[in-house]
């Protein structure tokens, strides 16, 4: 036994030392590159968050060292003229409901398209069409939607915006869920068929539990897209239904730009996505299917 451990350490120990000078250089360079990428990504965040804690004067004077204060946040949240709390609630309602609808439709569609033996042309034309739809800039649709919704009384309503967001984000969700559904081995569906499951039961008992990480990933992305969406809500909503991006935009007015409030509102708007990712990270791990086949 001791002999075995000896050879084991003897085998692994020199491997540690085998890094050559050039390998170490490569590793250092790699880390520098990664760090510079991280800087590019994180610096704007840092800038916005620090701006949120400055006074307007500090900010405009470009002070790097400053005494942090919460005035920006207090104004955004508690000022009587601020709609931000309302915007936040609107974004939540619209984001959650449209994400739910998108997930339901995309999952059903993906399961049907990939597992219920449609002729190839049905599959391809639907997927192709959804790609084209996804590539159309949303703003080109917004005008038409405004007219449509107006004529049926859905302008400036949650229903209208939720429908719009559901439509906008469905193609992406369909493609994502398609990948996850296709990853569910065909034999599992067949085994369930033989075990006596009908299509809805196959979906509920077999496919859904397996694609749960996929649902989480797709759901988070869809929610964040809806949360950030600007041009369509700009057209479809007024004060009562305005969402967070519109709320932030409103701090830039004709005569003044309320930079600190804007930064504070932006900082607050990051929170939901941040929390979502923090909590749901563990769902976005693949490999649940390991052990199913083979």
């Amino acid at each position: 036994m001791t002999h075995a451990t000896d050879t084991h350490t003897a085998l692994t120990a020199p491997r540690r030392r085998r890094f050559t000078a050039s390998e170490r250089q490569v590793s250092v360079i790699r880390h520098l590159v990664l760090m510079s990428f991280a800087l590019v990504v994180l610096f704007p965040f840092f800038w916005i968050v620090s701006a949120a804690f400055k006074t307007q004067i500090d900010l405009l004077m470009g002070k790097v060292l400053f005494t942090p204060n919460l005035d920006g946040f207090l104004d955004v949240i508690f000022d009587k003229t601020s709609d931000f709390a309302r915007n936040f609630a609107n974004s939540m309602v619209i984001g959650l409901i449209s994400t739910f609808l998108v997930l339901v439709i995309a999952t059903l569609a993906a399961f049907s398209l990939y597992r219920l033996q449609w002729p190839a042309w049905v599959l391809h034309s639907l997927l192709g069409w959804s790609v084209i739809f996804h590539m159309v800039p949303p703003i080109t649709l917004a005008g038409a939607w405004f007219t449509m919704f107006r004529s049926v009384g859905l302008d400036n309503s949650y229903t209208g915006i939720i429908l719009a967001h559901t439509t906008l984000h469905l193609p992406m969700a369909l493609w994502m869920m398609g990948v996850f559904v296709r990853d569910v081995p065909k034999e599992l569906v067949e085994a369930a068929q033989i075990d006596g499951a009908k299509v809805p039961q196959i979906l509920w008992h077999v496919v859904l539990p397996i694609v749960r990480p996929g649902l989480a990933a797709t759901g988070i992305l869809t929610f964040i897209f809806s949360w950030n969406e600007f041009p369509v809500v700009l057209v479809l909503s007024q004060r009562q239904t305005a969402t967070v991006p519109l709320g932030i935009g409103k701090y830039a007015q004709e005569n003044t730009i309320a930079f600190t409030e804007m930064a504070a509102a932006s900082t607050l708007s990051i929170l939901p996505a941040f929390l979502l990712l923090l909590f749901a990270q563990r769902f976005i791990v693949r490999g649940l299917t390991s052990g199913a086949v083979k």
Binding site: P185, E190, A191, A192, I194, A197, L288, G291, A292, V293
Partner: peptide
């Protein structure tokens, strides 16, 4: 007749066990 009503059981090459 659909598979579920044929009175059969099947063992697959890949086993096809429900992973969850």
């Amino acid at each position: 007749v659909p598979p579920r009503d044929r009175g059969i059981s099947m063992v697959f090459q890949s086993y096809a066990l429900y992973p969850h």
